[in-house]
Design a protein around this nucleic acid. Sequence first.
DNA 1: CCGGGCATATAACATATGTGAGTGCGTAGT
DNA 2: ACTACGCACTCACATATGTTATATGCCCGG
Lengths: 239, 239
Amino acid sequence: MPNPFVLKLEQCDSLSDDEKRVLESAISRVRVVENDEDIVHEGEHPSESNLLLDGFAARYKIFSNGRRQITAIHVAGDFVDLHSFLLKTMDHGVVALTPCRIAIVPHAALEKITDEYPHLTRLLWLNTLIDGAIHREWLTTMGRLSATAHTAHFICELFMRLKAVGRTDGDTIQLPLTQAELGDTLGLSTVHVNRVLQELRKEGLIRWQGDALTILDWERLVSVGEFTPTYLNLQREHR
Amino acid sequence: MPNPFVLKLEQCDSLSDDEKRVLESAISRVRVVENDEDIVHEGEHPSESNLLLDGFAARYKIFSNGRRQITAIHVAGDFVDLHSFLLKTMDHGVVALTPCRIAIVPHAALEKITDEYPHLTRLLWLNTLIDGAIHREWLTTMGRLSATAHTAHFICELFMRLKAVGRTDGDTIQLPLTQAELGDTLGLSTVHVNRVLQELRKEGLIRWQGDALTILDWERLVSVGEFTPTYLNLQREHR
DNA sequence: CCGGGCATATAACATATGTGAGTGCGTAGT
DNA sequence: ACTACGCACTCACATATGTTATATGCCCGG
């Protein structure tokens, strides 16, 4: 099976066979993390980073009073904590939302790549820059859109990202979040998430049963969420 | 005068003289951008990046209906669009909030650095990772704190960042934002920003006259804003 | 086959924040 | 000196979203 991370990088730029080989050999081992377990804990000083091969994960911060905010949702092909290579201290946790298959990449291997493979280094850097671009987009949708529009936008984004790594099934994606988790992602209360979802359903934009979310009207969902995918950088360029 | 960017990097790791020289020589020229002018426009494909030597700038996105969200505030020493080196297309604009003195760094020079100076490359990468960490922090404060706490948090952050580059004057910093701009930053309406500021003043936490913002009670401001500076990565480490 | 636990769904109510309009002050321009 | 303008500030009112509580359905383990 193709490494979804390579798949993702190849959306942005071309990779030489040599570079692919280097990437593969940077993986020291593969592990599985169960549902609801932390992949990385806040406060840790990890010496390796986690590449998600299968499953869904989330970055999150928790306040003293127990309120939680999810700052990123990760899917197959995402390097969930590549930044810990240089940031050293995890300022947030990463939790598995489903059982996750994870490739471990030691920081020593990353350091070697940065020493010897400039182009590959730029692509790894790019990867974290796209994370940043998504953060910015979330900031604007959170700050300036209604709860409904914000939710629609999130669904559009997730659909496109899953499509980029071949994890869509027609107009359907897997969305393994509870409404409470979706609230933590969007900065809303669980009750309001429920209201918003009902509205999106009533408007005939989506269907969501169990884990399966189906887009019923992409055009209108995009328009409600004011979604433009530029920030996802899914264009091939020389980097 | 010391380059504030070098100052900022040296908070995170040590730089060799050689690396400092390379950085300085990467600057092709210095320009001044006036108040309210765009430093970079959304949609552009820049071939150089902008390093802020003096002044304040903001990254922003605008929606069709004119609503604006500021996703980052930049101060002296910040590389306002280093990410355009690899992202290629600007997915947001950057505007000067005050007159800005800016060092221009051609992408060709950055490419050369990534080809030849791995450690310096990691520090540049780190710089964009810290931007990302700040974005995440803003997401959590925006999503899960009250307007007052969110505002207090923002003030704490800005104070610490300015202190890191030697731009504080005792407990006072320059905060050249209108209340409308602060609203765009925090995702609040102008009217509500005004209410929040009155509250912070009434509580004796801050004084804000013209551009000068004074912290009157740091401890309580930190506690109201639930501020912890870990995410700013102002610790020296080997990277 | 039953019971516990979790997730979704609803309802009534509380409140933080947004909206639209308007005042007054200070500064810049003519 | 007058005007225009931007910005801080206020007020009355509207509403989106949060809160607390309860009901309902569903899955899983015993």
